[in-house]
Design a protein around this nucleic acid. Sequence first.
DNA 1: CGACTGATTGACTGCCCTCAAATAGGGTGG
DNA 2: CCACCCTATTTGAGGGCAGTCAATCAGTCG
Lengths: 233, 233
Amino acid sequence: MALVMNANLTRPASPNLLPLGLRSSLFDGLAPSEINALLAAARKRRFPPHEVIQREGEPATGSFLLATGRAVAYKLTPEGERVFLHWIVPGDAFGFTAPRRKPPPCVATVQTLRESLVLVWDWESSLALTSQFPQLRGNACAAMANHLASVSRVLVARCSQTARQRLARMLVESADQIGRTGSEGIEIDLTNEDLADMAGVSLFTASRQLSEWQRKGILAKRRGRILLHSRNV
Amino acid sequence: MALVMNANLTRPASPNLLPLGLRSSLFDGLAPSEINALLAAARKRRFPPHEVIQREGEPATGSFLLATGRAVAYKLTPEGERVFLHWIVPGDAFGFTAPRRKPPPCVATVQTLRESLVLVWDWESSLALTSQFPQLRGNACAAMANHLASVSRVLVARCSQTARQRLARMLVESADQIGRTGSEGIEIDLTNEDLADMAGVSLFTASRQLSEWQRKGILAKRRGRILLHSRNV
DNA sequence: CGACTGATTGACTGCCCTCAAATAGGGTGG
DNA sequence: CCACCCTATTTGAGGGCAGTCAATCAGTCG
């Protein structure tokens, strides 16, 4: 029951097509020559941590594929609160739009968490490539469908779950997505504030709830890190 | 600032292509002969009021285009609460998915409000048509992008707005979408309960808030109907 | 060993939901 | 035309979840 359904690895493309060993469902069903054409058209761009790759509302002037690193997609409320949508991990594509004359506005903001390597296609070449390779358009379409499903799940979670439930859910999903399995459980590098933002909960509610779970022995806390003993909720 | 951005009439197709005079952005950029091929492949189906056309979670075995009538798209929480997504008006397409081997599950439930005429393409012909006409795939993709933007707006509204604000917003949007302009303002055929469901607010909160607005002279209420004097909020 | 940032804890507040009970529209049948 | 019923709606009282504010504590890094 993952909240985040990213566009990675449903059917693996041929392995090691890139020097990076990058796999992505964006390449599903494409011939190696076609993939090479894609890669040739892409610019590789390196982003430092906490850098905005695309900003909600601005024209979608490019399409992206995360090669290495990590990023997060979120929306901003008029009051400036961030509404977490999903993590973006290597292999995930974003910024693809329906074919139009003009770039439509971005739906969400995407920001790196750590140093990341991103393949970038500008608007024109993205348009050209997706019209040249119908399979690619289909794959981009599938990525959009996944985003739609993902946002829908976030919506339902926000509408029907309590603060405690949303926190629990975010913990489990973050463990799946960005957790490192250690000797005593799953370690997640997140501050209380990160977790609170993602779950849509105040910093204090998050702190109180996490403390309660720690008292019950479900997890242990270090500064800026959470150690989840098991994934039961 | 419409919450609902449906797939209608961005650039009009040639007029009166159908006996119904149906226009839809689904036909954008298609030649008349192509549109005829589309229509020939479609089955016309009439739904009585309050009939479910597609149900969330079930395989998306068809693609739809509403010709006449009205419908609503919503999601269900595990507790059975309905989360309103958007109205569906004539010209709106829904149920289109990314090209896949198997039909993916529907993202939302779509239900008629009144008797409606719907064009239906089954899974196979939908797949065949969208691969035959790249422009059609693009248009279906655009419809999906609109749904994504729409759900995102609902999400942000749910996360950042108070009950009062959400009610106001739903009133204005419903006025745009399904209101009839009368002599004294815009009439909307909605019960308190409908409005409360859509805004994600309890029946009582809706009643209290509407009464307050009525006292202030912003609107008048009849049983099962709301008369909005102006659209200011 | 400061200093800064992250985390904790308690007290208070407020929005909005729940429940109960009464009221009013509006159609229907006599 | 009126009585009646079903449903929509109103209104009040009470309560709970979770947010806000304030003050303190603790970990890490220079």
